[in-house]
Design a protein around this nucleic acid. Structure first.
Lengths: 206, 206
DNA sequence: AATTTCAGACCGACCGTCGGTCTATTTATT
DNA sequence: AATAAATAGACCGACGGTCGGTCTGAAATT
């Protein structure tokens, strides 16, 4: 039996199922055949929409990044938040290392190394410009002072993204909270922000 | 024709050739058959020494880490260096992101994602304890002040390792130098060290 | 209104490659 | 001679990807 659908509908079906499979079994262990079974299509159909399994991964990550970027843009525009608070919001919006939230980070490392790497690269490349504008605001208002605004952002994004990845490092609840505290404290320090301006309550990270 | 060798000799032969293949073609694209051809052994021999291709990768990385750790221990012991200078030495000893130096970082990302991830995890896990001792020295002498010594080390290691990976990000010569400056500046700042104590001459990074 | 044409969605058999297994055989050790 | 260690390479199954072709609905032609 043959079911024909609109291009974008089918494409998104594939993306949705692939995404959840990647989350559950990891990218490596997810077979193209797994995806076919889930979406109920034939091999040919899959390769009609994507030219490789990796391209599906790219598309999945892209979709996630698009959402994150939009959220970040919204936060940037707000006038009721101080620059520091905006940065906190943007970072929390990434929901780094939190299972079942976005696309990223499940299971043990070998399965998801590629997904992890592509995610970091994407986040750093695309989120840095927006965050840089926020930091510049902060510099203009005198909230921040730093000789390396852009580099500071990149450092904090990579470190945060990698260290909170449960597939790479494991920690107790306390270690995790302490790490997150340290990350925000470091951001604050490197930006030369007022002490305490990057403090977040525990409720916000769990 | 059949050539028999001592266990460790053969094992290291495999490791050596695998390592250079990983560097040249990347881990993913390097076939077990490639390794066999290079070492001139049969499949059975390979799997007599290693139970999987991934185990070879682990062994290669482990060898690299062993060397880095030894260097770090040596630096730690020295009495002619200030803590800050010791940390610089340890980090430069990693030769992060430098092609053809250690095992790590060649080519484009997808091929080496796993290698990269395992390297970071290994470096962070095994190097942090040693660097922590050095930082503690610095705290004792009053050179450093920080509420998060261990976390600071981890942040700087992951950021440095990832951002200088030419397989993930590309930069011009100037961008690269500026990034490295920023990394050392950040380390200095987060450790609360005296300004300029982490300054390095350009000669030392090229 | 009936028929032809066309494009794009879809199908699944097939292929080459690759990591890994199995068992036989040779070499070293005692 | 017996045993263990090392080597060999034919073989296997799974996987990503290809290819030739089919189905369907809508536009164009008659």
């Amino acid at each position: 039996m043959r079911i024909s659908k609109e291009h974008d509908v089918r494409r998104n079906e594939i993306l949705d199922k692939a995404e959840s499979l990647f989350e559950v079994k990891g990218y490596n262990k997810t077979t193209v055949n797994d995806i076919l079974r889930e979406v109920n299509i034939a091999k040919g159909t899959f390769y009609y929409y994507f030219k490789s399994k990796e391209e599906v991964l790219d598309a999945v990550i892209d979709r996630y990044l698009e959402i994150a970027l939009e959220r970040a843009e919204d936060v940037k525009k707000r006038t009721d938040l101080a620059p520091a608070e905006k940065l906190i919001q943007v970072i929390l919006g990434l929901r780094m290392g939190e299972p079942n939230s976005g696309v990223i980070e499940e299971l043990h490392s070998p399965e998801n190394a590629l997904m992890h790497q592509k995610s970091i690269a994407g986040v750093v490349l695309r989120l840095t410009p927006i965050m840089k504008e926020i930091v510049n605001e902060g510099i203009a208002t005198g909230d921040f002072t730093t000789p390396f605004p852009e580099e500071t952002i990149k450092i904090m994004l990579t470190a945060g993204f990698t260290l909170t990845d449960e597939g790479m490092f494991s920690f107790t609840q306390e270690e995790r909270q302490r790490l997150i505290q340290a990350l925000f404290y470091s951001f604050e320090t490197l930006l030369g922000a007022k002490k305490g301006s990057f403090d977040i309550g525990f409720e916000r990270i769990n």
